[in-house]
């Protein structure tokens, strides 16, 4: 197991955000945290990153207890819902940020930074935009800059908070498949938060359904659809487009063919 969350509780004042949450995430998989808004899924993500501390419970990375580990030592990449790009830096500097701020001893030299950034830039297909500032990019482009910036520090875990939430419907669908392919190309475990059932089922290897701070069911997209654990899951997934799961399989099959279709 790569990441393990065991019996995590979190309260904000009197509001119970997480109630005894336990999730195990296998290495290299892409996991969706799915649930209605305000259910606590983003809190789970922030606790894994270290941006929130749980009231009780344990977070383990590769069997090692990370509960008290500092954020910078966790090696997580976090993609924020509104991207949080540094608006006074261009695309290149945004992506290079995580490398440039390293202590002198472990900081790569300028040439290595340049190579790394350019490799990431072409991975997210923004080769012609390195000198642009965030305000000069479209939503989808900013999303990809945020992704490249998070990947620059070579995280073992990639955390994405509503990665498609701020995009319009068409771009969303394209980015979905693109993210799935990107994940398959790089050695990383990804966890993303979404309230969109189709999105979760189409992109992920397994789905964690969360409601009111509790985990309702964990399983592959097929499992949660075919045999929902309780009435909430059944109801929550009832209006899912059955095709999205099949589409995902087809999408994966066609990866090589339309790899360069561009988004």
């Amino acid at each position: 197991m790569n990441i393990e969350i065991a019996n995590v509780n979190k309260k904000f004042g009197n509001f119970v955000a997480l109630d005894d949450v336990s999730i195990s995430i296998p290495k290299g998989e892409i996991i969706a945290l799915l649930g209605p808004s305000g259910c606590g899924k983003t809190t789970i993500l922030r606790i894994i990153a270290g941006l929130e501390t749980p009231d009780s419970g344990v977070i383990k990375f590769f069997g090692e207890d990370f509960s008290n580990k500092k954020i910078k030592d966790r090696k997580v990449g976090f993609v924020f819902q509104h991207y949080a790009l540094f608006r006074h830096m261009n695309v290149f500097e945004n992506i290079a940020f995580g490398l440039r701020i390293r202590p002198r001893k472990i900081r790569p030299d300028e040439k290595t930074i340049r190579e790394n950034v350019m490799r990431l830039v072409s991975l997210v297909q923004l080769d012609n935009f390195v000198n642009r500032f965030p305000s000069e990019l479209s939503g989808g482009q900013r999303q990809r800059v945020a992704l490249a910036r998070a990947l620059a520090v070579e995280p073992t875990v990639l955390l994405l908070d509503e990665p498609f939430g701020a995009l319009d419907a068409k771009v969303r669908k394209e980015l979905r498949l693109w993210l799935r392919r990107l994940h398959d190309e790089i050695p990383v475990t990804s966890i993303f938060v979404t309230h969109d059932q189709d999105e979760a089922l189409e992109v992920s290897d397994s789905v964690v359904i969360v409601n009111k701070g509790k985990v309702e069911q964990i399983g592959s997209p097929e499992e949660v659809c075919d045999s929902p654990a309780n009435p909430f899951v059944a109801d929550f997934l009832s209006d899912v487009d059955e095709l999205s799961i099949k589409k995902k399989k087809k999408g994966l099959f066609n990866v090589i063919n339309d790899k360069r279709q561009g988004i």
Partner: peptide, 21 residues
């Protein structure tokens, strides 16, 4: 807080976050 948190997850120290972000 987003920008500061982003810098934090990228490994920046408090001092670096203040000066650079």
């Amino acid at each position: 807080k987003d920008d500061e948190e982003a810098a934090l997850t990228l490994g920046a120290s408090g001092f670096q976050i203040f000066w650079k972000v």
